[in-house]
Design a protein around this nucleic acid. Sequence first.
DNA 1: CAGGATCCCACAGGATACTG
DNA 2: CAGTATCCTGTGGGATCCTG
Lengths: 132, 132
Amino acid sequence: MMINTLNFNEDYLGKLEQNICYNKILNMADTIDVLTGKWKIPIIICLSFKPKRFSEISRELKTITDRTLSKELKFLEENLLITRNIIDEYPLSIEYQITEHGLSLTKILMILREWGEIHRERILESHRSTKI
Amino acid sequence: MMINTLNFNEDYLGKLEQNICYNKILNMADTIDVLTGKWKIPIIICLSFKPKRFSEISRELKTITDRTLSKELKFLEENLLITRNIIDEYPLSIEYQITEHGLSLTKILMILREWGEIHRERILESHRSTKI
DNA sequence: CAGGATCCCACAGGATACTG
DNA sequence: CAGTATCCTGTGGGATCCTG
């Protein structure tokens, strides 16, 4: 997983530089991978406050389907961003908890938010000026 | 564009906090939007060195199709990350150039790369330990 | 050279129904 | 409660061919 097949031309910045550049891009893509899609960021944020159960997450995210939530939780667990803890056997109760590694995304999310704000400003500004 | 329809429950952190949180997530999603997909990051990096023409970009990215390159360049232009400059009419020659705004993504890309490196380490490490 | 048009497939994610 | 199974649609992106 996470290994995509992007191919830069071998002449790109010379072979050595190209390989370095190639790996850097792979690393960026890996990070994007973990944040992309409609629900990963909301789930991460939702769990960053405290551990929660399946139904709690589902309720807070409101429009997510069980199927999607189930898949995304599995994905995040495989990526070591959350853990799935069995709390009680009878009745079955399971808790999802963010890991340290998962929390380390917080910094990135803040930076994404900041840039997104600026970006939205620019776009709106440019739309205004073209309409005058 | 860029406005998705994510819906947090109204009770989420209380109504006020929820609205703030909701907007923050929209901003994050906007940034991700600009970086997601197979080719946006490579194109941005490719153009961050110097302005290039369609065929140059195509050659350097090697496996990208004309159709995809065309669409992505249009997307990046609409998002004010690059400009499309007509250099010569006869023969037609056009140059794509990254904007200041586009260059401001560099910082984010570095951070994504750093986290991606760490992430890959963790994943590999965990796979090693489960196989022992 | 700088793309547009068309066809095609894989995958994300919603709707709905069911299970231990 | 904590999911799984099935069906369905929209979109990303490759392949191929065509044009000013």
